[in-house]
Nucleic acid binder design. Sequence first.
RNA 1: GUGGCUGUAGCUCAGUUGGCAGAGCACCGGGUUGUGGUCCCGGUUGUCGUGGGUUCAAUUCCCAUCAGUCACCCCA
Length: 441
Amino acid sequence: MSKPTPISGFPEWTPGQRMVEQYVLDKIRATFELYGFAPLETRAVEPLDQLLRKGETSKEVYVIRRLHADADSAGDDQLGLHFDLTVPFARYVLENAGKLAFPFRRYQIQKVWRGERPQEGRYREFVQADIDIVDRDTLAPHHEAEMPLVIGDALRSLPIPPVTIQVNNRKICEGFYRGIGLTDPEAALRAVDKLDKIGPAKVAELLAQTAGASEAQAKACLALAEISAPDASFADAVRALGVTDPLLDEGIDELVRVVETATEHSPGLCVADLRIARGLDYYTGTVYETQLRGYERFGSICSGGRYDNLASAGTTSYPGVGISIGVTRLLGLLFGAGELSVSRSVPTAVLVAVTDEEHRGASNRVAEALRRRGVPTEVSPSAAKFGKQIRYAERRGIPYVWFPGADGAADEVKDIRSGEQVTAAAGEWMPPREDLTPTVS
RNA sequence: GUGGCUGUAGCUCAGUUGGCAGAGCACCGGGUUGUGGUCCCGGUUGUCGUGGGUUCAAUUCCCAUCAGUCACCCCA
């Protein structure tokens, strides 16, 4: 009866926006494949206990319920929609380890669902573009250095502002916290993670409250978190704090490698930023976050890290490293900022005018000839006055209108942006390359 | 999940101390009897987010709800 309304957190784009999204997804996919990641899609649902196996019950997971299920059959076989692509992937690796060759590199571009309260750039249904590399038992640390390079290439292939990938290493934080005698590194991480938002004074308070830090310990944590450098010099800054711990040294070495690799292959892409924590409990090594330059207020649009304990079967473990682009978030924020749009609202490059309904066949034949040569073409819906047919094209941003010649006269095609009109043959004419498909910018 | 702000035409917004709902842009028609865009004339925009309550009367006041947005939580 009444007009349908949107469902909170489930965005639906316009056709123009969807064309942008498809363009973006194509570019990302091409880059992932260029680096040799194999495609994979996993089912939308996982057993609920798998999704929640980290123990946290506060996870906002959508649960699947069958309308006609027996009321008393809700057992432990309940299903939930996946909230990321890493957990299903870990499950998939365990399930199919026998068929996979390790190290296994795969990409996965799919929708995920989270039941959080939506706001701009935060949705309940959204697309992630994820890459991971997993190996059996041990995963060489150079893979942690490769991730930012792939993402850097993928994001640079898009008409979006340049990005900065901030990297840190959990071992640095945990080793450092251990080195200064803090007993609850998780709590310390969570507190430090809020540094940008609440400032050093409040973080120090939090550290004291939740991590049992003394004033000196809190001060040391903040000193560590404030270290940021575009190169390996961060290591000197850490060492200058005078804390020693074997895990800390290991972390520094790993992070140096990530930063130096990035500097060599993609200068300016990465910055070691020791405040980056990621709330995630399962990260054990390098962690990544990504900001759009000039749009830091958007927060991270791509993040991930190394995990050593996400998948194991018996005595075999499958350590991995992965990073995920929040495609919907990226698009939503840039659409909102008016920073990303497309040159027309339809794929059509040419509208073939219809002289009168008796001659619609002639227009159809022109369209056919153009399409056969790869020119997206539609035929005018009505034989209205040519002015109206031109306006039909104009309203949609279609750049060309084709006029079939009457009584054996030559056909003509008009660029309605410039008004220029030339004679043309449907078997030969091609629009300039830049007009063939809509331009995303 | 908690709290704040917002919701009027396709878009940006005005408005009524409670009395039939407005502007600009866009759109449609005509000037322009088959080539748009400029210009001129005219026209329609609409359950005033939805449902309920108070009232002779609600777009306006009250409650609920939905949606958007912000902060918190969370960000796997």
